[in-house]
């Protein structure tokens, strides 16, 4: 496989040609925050807006999940502009997220916590207002796992697994805009849907929205 030379934060790397920058950087051990990225998707979602980087010759920061590497590419993962965008996107996600990490079964295994640690961001709201004013009910209808919509970041990983890997087709994105959420046909609890409770979706959830029941006890 042909390789190209790129520079990330001053370090030179050889990465496979044609690869998206996010995966190339992660393989080189450079962390770039991300939630929705999925290597197996033919077209990146680019919806979480966390993987911004600056590339020499580009006027504005770009999402690294959509950007293919090229020979001589010079990347900076931390610039004032990148940090500002990532911080705002992160705070926006937190503003609609049930915080109180101590009570979350995913505590210490959560991607949001990882991003906060890596980028020295606070795990509480200081600037923005909480948008999660009333908590939506938690779906604990299945025997295997629970779904807490208040912790969902809409990364779409579970839906992709459900549709493309296990090919069940139980869940999808429903509604539009601020009301967009992961849900079932007719908005029924998971146990009443087509869901086979295989638990594959739980394994890909980066946060505490889908959690195995054994963890919650």
């Amino acid at each position: 496989m042909s390789k190209v030379n790129i520079t990330i934060d001053g370090q030179q790397y050889q990465v496979p040609a044609g690869e998206k920058l996010l995966w190339a950087a992660l393989d080189c051990g450079v962390y770039i925050p991300h939630l929705c990225a999925n290597k197996d998707k033919e077209r990146p979602d680019a919806s979480c807006r966390l993987c911004f980087v600056e590339i020499e010759g580009f006027s504005n920061p770009v999402t690294s999940c959509t950007q293919e590497v090229f020979e001589g590419m010079v990347v900076r993962t931390r610039t004032p502009q990148v940090d500002r965008l990532v911080q705002t996107a992160f705070e926006l996600l937190l503003s609609n997220h049930k915080l109180r990490c101590g009570k979350c079964p995913q505590n210490r295994q959560c991607e949001l916590q990882k991003i906060a640690r890596e980028r020295k961001l606070k795990l509480k709201l200081t600037r923005l207002r909480p948008l999660l004013t009333e908590e939506k009910p938690v779906d604990d209808s299945t025997d295997v796992f629970i779904y807490d919509p208040n912790r969902c970041v809409l990364c779409g990983q579970c839906i992709w697994v459900d549709h493309k890997i296990v090919e069940v087709g139980a869940i999808g994105f429903i509604n539009r805009g601020f009301k967009r959420k992961m849900g079932t046909f007719g908005d029924v609890p998971l146990a009443e849907s087509r869901c086979t409770q295989c638990g594959e979706c739980v394994k890909v959830c980066p946060v505490g929205a889908l959690v195995f029941k054994e963890k919650t006890e």
């Binding site: 549709h163 069940v168 087709g169 139980a170 869940i171 999808g172 994105f173 429903i174 509604n175 539009r176 849900g183 079932t184 046909f185 007719g186 849907s193 087509r194």
Partner: peptide, 25 residues
């Protein structure tokens, strides 16, 4: 709901995909 189920069967797609579209527009 029964109509959406019927459409999903005819097009051979999950019902939730019909629901996604119906709740989007």
């Amino acid at each position: 709901k029964p109509a959406m189920e019927q459409v999903a069967r005819a097009l051979d797609i999950p019902e939730v995909d019909v629901y996604s579209v119906a709740t989007f527009y």
